[in-house]
């Protein structure tokens, strides 16, 4: 009886000689492949057989819902659910203030509700500058308060507008202006007296809403709207520049001011003001990095992005 080693050598020789003939190679390879496929099929059969015999398949299958209910619909003028293209107005509840409102206005609402966004800043500051009872509806959430100025500053430096600048709802800015102009003059006069004692933030906010040009005669700020015909845009700009200079502020605060001014432009105020302010705002932002490079997101990826920018030409 030949030993295993001898058998091995004999086998090797046998196979080698057989396979030296190319015709044999083809046939042999096919045969091997077919065997392999059959054994893979066998494996799957055993798996399914086992699952079936052990009751697993039954449990997995359960009772199926009617499949046709969820079939995709393909047709003109409708989506895949067979629903018409135009959507019905939807409503939702604000997680912050629990009010019900139209879904399409949720984002701007939330923005004010959380005390973010430029409008909210204005409104919040209006609370400071006058005690009008109209402001009841809006409240900044607590955890955002401390971060208010920091967050918005950062945001303003880095944010570039990508979307549509929608005209603000009439109920936000305008009415406020009107109130200021007509209703509470006396209060404002008080504010005037107290102008010097206001914080810079408050002054800035005030100047976002009113003309602000100091009347030579009365030495008081003009409280008419930003479109007031008594004074020119030049004058208004000068007042703001003076405020900034007195602060000793750097370029960084300028965008705050300018951006907010653009905001009020959207309420229908002076065209030329916007253009000139808009241009300088653009100038300002040309030196900032893209929002995608914002350092406040994952540090690793932003680091990578900066690196990426550098390596590209």
């Amino acid at each position: 009886m030949a030993s295993v080693e001898e058998k091995q050598i004999e086998l090797d020789r046998e196979v080698r000689s057989y396979l030296s003939n190319p015709n044999n190679v083809e046939a042999a390879a096919e045969a091997v492949l077919n065997d392999l496929v059959d054994s893979v099929v066998l494996g799957i059969v055993f798996e399914v057989h086992r699952a079936a015999k052990c009751g697993i398949v039954d449990h997995e299958d359960g009772i199926t819902d009617e499949v046709s209910k969820f079939e995709i619909v393909e047709g003109a003028d409708m989506d895949i659910f067979g629903q018409p293209l135009k959507k019905r107005p939807q409503r939702c509840i604000c997680p912050s203030c629990k009010r019900s409102l139209a879904a399409l206005r949720f984002a701007p609402h939330l923005s004010k509700c959380m005390g973010l966004g430029r409008n909210s800043l204005r409104l919040a500051s209006r609370q400071i500058t006058n005690s009008s009872k109209e402001m009841v509806g809006y409240s900044a959430t607590d955890d955002n308060d401390s971060e208010l100025s920091l967050g918005s500053d950062r945001r303003r430096k880095k944010r570039v507008s990508f979307g549509t600048r929608r005209p603000k709802n009439s109920k936000t800015g305008r009415n406020g202006d009107v109130t200021l102009e007509t209703g509470t003059c006396s209060e404002l006069n008080n504010s005037n007296m107290n102008y010097d004692s206001m914080s810079n933030e408050e002054k800035k906010n005030l100047l976002m809403q009113i003309c602000g040009v100091i009347s030579v005669s009365t030495r008081k700020l003009c409280t008419r709207s930003m479109r007031c015909s008594q004074h020119s845009d030049e004058q208004r700009r000068a007042v703001r520049a003076a405020l900034l200079n007195s602060q000793g502020s750097d370029m960084n605060s300028t965008p705050d001011m300018l951006q907010v001014d653009i905001d009020s432009y959207e309420d229908g105020d002076g065209q030329s003001m916007c253009e000139s302010l808009g241009q300088s705002w653009e100038q300002e932002h040309s030196n900032t990095s893209s929002p995608a490079d914002s350092a406040s997101t994952s540090s690793s990826s932003s680091k990578k992005r900066e690196k990426n920018t550098k390596t590209q030409e």
Partner: peptide
């Protein structure tokens, strides 16, 4: 309506928050 999601992300990612089209 992803109102809760929006609220949560704005709460946790301040630099993004605020009503404006974003990247």
């Amino acid at each position: 309506i992803l109102h809760r999601l929006l609220h949560m992300i704005w709460t946790h990612a301040h630099h993004l928050a605020g009503y404006e089209q974003q990247d």
